[in-house]
């Protein structure tokens, strides 16, 4: 067993625990913080079903972003949908036998890395080229895009340039899932790819990547527009009436 195998096994356990625990903590924190006032951005749906539909349009179509700026929308869609397909494709390294729909997805997932990388490059270019966005960009904004881009490019390189032993890789990850460390193929590019992915998992719950769970808790998007019909009262506000 190589040192690298043990180190990466430890890293991925740490990353998985941080990601899951961190996100669970954040989500619980958002959920238990009250929204004392009705503040949906109107016009807003008047029913719960309507809110689900609004949220679905926001999450799957980026509706508000579409209204706002077509360039950001285009690059964001390319990146996020590319990433989603790529992630789903990667399920094949964690399932045996591979689920049939993941098999069907394989060609799409393979090529989705290209729009993903193009989208990231476009989003990053805006941070240099558009004066307003240059002004608001922090070092972490750049680093986050660099990290995602490096993940995409290292992954693409292994697919198209320097193949790695995916059978052995899959054995490694299946092993991790039964708490058994199998040897990880010795490949610099693979080490890089995995190291970056683990980094992303580690910083997710502490960074602006919280926009992913955050959108579901945004009162301006998730509230039903019915303040006249139903009294809405936060527990801390109800105390004032006693």
């Amino acid at each position: 067993m190589s040192i690298a195998s043990i180190l990466f096994a430890a890293l991925f356990y740490l990353a998985a625990i941080t990601l899951a625990g961190g996100l669970a903590y954040r989500i619980a924190d958002y959920a238990r913080t009250p929204a004392p006032l009705k503040i949906p951005t109107t016009p807003a749906p008047t029913t719960t079903g309507g809110v689900v539909f609004r949220m679905a349009r926001e999450v799957f179509l980026f509706e508000s972003l579409f209204k706002s700026n077509l360039w950001i929308w285009l690059f964001s869609i390319l990146f996020h949908f590319g990433l989603a397909l790529v992630l789903l494709r990667h399920l094949r390294y964690f399932t045996e036998p591979v689920w049939s729909w993941v098999v069907l997805l394989q060609p799409f997932g393979t090529y989705a890395a290209f729009p993903m990388v193009i989208g990231l490059a476009g989003l990053w270019a805006r941070r240099f080229l558009v004066e307003r966005i240059r002004y608001i960009s922090t070092p972490s904004d750049h680093l986050m895009l660099a990290l995602l881009l490096a993940i995409g490019l290292s992954g693409l390189s292994m697919k198209w340039l320097v193949h790695t032993d995916v059978v052995a890789l899959k054995t490694f990850f299946l092993g991790l899932m039964r708490f058994d460390v199998e040897p990880l193929p010795a490949s610099g590019l693979l080490y890089l790819h995995l190291g970056l992915v683990a980094t992303l998992m580690l910083i997710f719950p502490f960074s602006k990547l919280l926009h992913a769970p955050g959108v579901f808790f945004s009162p301006s998007r998730n509230q039903v527009d019915n303040p006249r019909e139903k009294r809405h009262l936060a527990p801390w506000a109800a105390e004032m009436e006693k």
Binding site: Y30, S64, I72, V130, R132
Partner: peptide, 12 residues
């Protein structure tokens, strides 16, 4: 809380 966390500086 959510708004302080969620912004990604997209520029929209």
């Amino acid at each position: 809380k959510v708004y302080l966390d969620a912004c990604v500086h997209c520029g929209a």
